[in-house]
Amino acid sequence: MKPTYKFKKPELLHGVDTHYCSGCGHGILHRLIAEIIEELNLKEKTIGVAPVGCAVIAYNYWDFDCSEASHGRALAVATGIKRVHPSLTVFTYQGDGDLASIGLAETMHAANRGENLTCVFVNNACYGMTGGQMAPTTLIGQKTATTPLGRDPREKEGWPLKVSEILAMLPGVCFVARSSISNPAHVKQTHDYIKRAFMNQTEEKGFSIVEVLSPCPTIWQKTPEEAMNWIDTEMTKEFPLGIIKNTEVHR
């Protein structure tokens, strides 16, 4: 007799081992996205765009159409795809360096055009792939490869950039939420937010973004458990969780 699964790996997630470090948040998020696309029955209608960063080869793990994008340009690439195929569901999967630093112009303008896109914004407060440099979202006092004494606004290293709050001000944006994956309840919440963001696109509501606070234990030099705790105790102080905007876009 076939076993009945209560919790089962989604079909859209290939069974291969990922290249991510132990305790990396990308694995959880990849699974969530695969689950959501399955639940919404969108496999044949989804195109993912993953730009430069640790997750650039996300297509090795997902079983639907995907494109790479150069650093920062995921939302421009997604705009091109979506305008050619308005009936398909197009989403980007971007890190903080990508979305909030080098790609800030593309982010702002795709959102401001009200592109009917879904953006999953993975915030781990650092550049993970390149060895842990300061990101726009790096916390004050956080030590990175390029802020060895800790990020210090007095040294003109700036403050953590709250892109989600900024995007929420734009009329083309219909849904902005921030969540984390620091514990099972938060993972479930993240699932619900991202699912909402996908459904908004199907319902042609406009630009949706979900910012997810995600651990990078390797760069943070913490155990996976400590990393999850650090999200709860430190990151959420600067980046509070919850829905920031949820509205119909007036066209």
Partner: peptide
């Protein structure tokens, strides 16, 4: 930069 990357996307989509 955005323009060429939009073209990248549109071309990837087959147009």
């Amino acid at each position: 930069i955005a323009a060429i990357n939009m073209v990248y996307g549109a071309s990837a989509a087959g147009a």
